[in-house]
């Protein structure tokens, strides 16, 4: 088991990654020059609105960017091994041993005509290297079902149609953990769930992290869920990373990207009566027709002349809290240029 507290034990490293969809004039870059690293034992949140590239970034961590998307620059490394140029065979071996994914809408991922148990047996048969004795694999799955607060015996015999959406989401999480990956990536794990099922998934992710020591990367648009679960956060906007830091830095630091500030202020909360809630004016830019300079500038209250023509670099302090904003970074001293 990985220990939860590590000294920068980098597991997954995204290095200057660019992912394009289509080619020629119609091509768009869903992810552009993004660098970040996930250390063992972290719960890493990728946050942003629809179309910001957060899911594409998550897919590229597994090298499963859907067609016509492709990685046109940079690399993804797992424990230092580059995945972009890796052979398909090595990639499959790496994925089945180390990486797992729970897709968005995973509640619709099950085969409706065979039981959950049969589907789990199929996975165990395909990967005898993990559990040579299938009985051991079944026992492990029962243990996982208990961790996601489901009755193992009943679930094993169930068809997916006999389970609620919230139950299916939790079964999907248990299935992802079946082969004992060191990293599990979840795309929008709490979306489309009501508040009680959402709370259950939040609690379960924290439990799994604590009990299994598994590293978690999750994609979400919900900042409240980020505050509940994440230890580290990357915020994306229109394909670029705009801010990254620990969860406290993102929510509490003085120096903060204006987009992140606006996102936090746009959450109608039960904590505060609506006075500070403000919508963000304008709309996310079309990736095929991006503004010159900072991509958030057309919606930004702080935007200055420089923002109109120069893209802001991600700059930060020693601790790894990086912000891509000319204005915020100029006003904050001291500061060092990061390599990112």
């Amino acid at each position: 088991m990985n220990s939860v507290n590590t000294d920068d034990q980098t597991l997954l490293e995204i290095d200057d990654l660019t992912v394009a969809f289509g080619d020629g004039a119609g091509s768009v870059r869903a992810v552009e020059n993004v660098s970040l690293s996930v250390a063992a034992g972290e719960i890493y949140a990728l946050v942003g609105e629809s179309g910001c590239g957060k899911s594409t970034l998550a897919y590229s961590m597994l090298q499963i960017v859907p067609q016509p998307g492709r990685i046109i620059g940079g690399d993804v490394r797992f424990r230092g091994r580059g995945m972009v140029t890796m052979s398909k065979r090595d990639l499959n071996a790496l994925r089945s041993a180390e990486l797992a994914m729970v897709f968005q809408g995973a509640m619709n991922a099950f085969n409706p005509v065979v039981t959950i148990g049969t589907q789990v047996d199929h996975i165990l048969q395909a990967h005898p290297e993990v559990f040579p004795d299938p009985k051991e694999g079944r026992n492990h799955f029962e243990h996982l079902l208990e961790l996601v607060q489901l009755p193992p015996k009943r679930i094993w015999k169930s068809f997916e149609s006999q389970l609620s959406g919230g139950m299916k989401q939790r079964v999907a999480i248990a299935v992802a953990l079946l082969l004992q990956p060191s990293v599990v990536i979840l795309d929008e794990p709490t979306t489309a769930l009501d508040v009680l099922n959402q709370r259950l998934v939040i609690d379960i992710l924290k439990d799994l992290h604590r009990d299994l020591g598994v590293t978690i990367v999750f994609v979400t648009h919900d900042l409240a869920v980020v505050a509940e679960v994440a230890t580290r956060v990357a915020v994306m906007y229109a394909g670029r990373l705009v801010e990254t830091g620990t969860v406290e830095e993102i929510f509490k630091a003085e120096r903060r990207h204006p987009y992140v500030e606006a996102l936090i202020n746009a959450i109608p909360s039960v904590l505060d009566v609506g006075l500070t809630v403000e919508p963000i004016g304008g709309a996310v830019p079309n990736l095929a027709d991006l503004p010159a300079g900072c991509r958030f500038a057309p919606r930004c209250g702080l935007a200055e002349e420089i923002c109109q023509h120069t893209e802001p670099p991600l700059l930060g302090d020693d601790g790894g809290h990086l912000v891509a904003c000319h204005v915020v970074n100029r006003n904050a001293v001291p500061m060092e240029v990061s390599e990112a």
């Binding site: 939040i202 900042l223 980020v226 505050a227 969860v247 929510f251 509490k252």
Partner: peptide, 10 residues
């Protein structure tokens, strides 16, 4: 059960 958008309160 509502998620709280504040890591310190959480």
């Amino acid at each position: 059960a509502i998620p709280v958008p504040d890591p310190v309160l959480v």
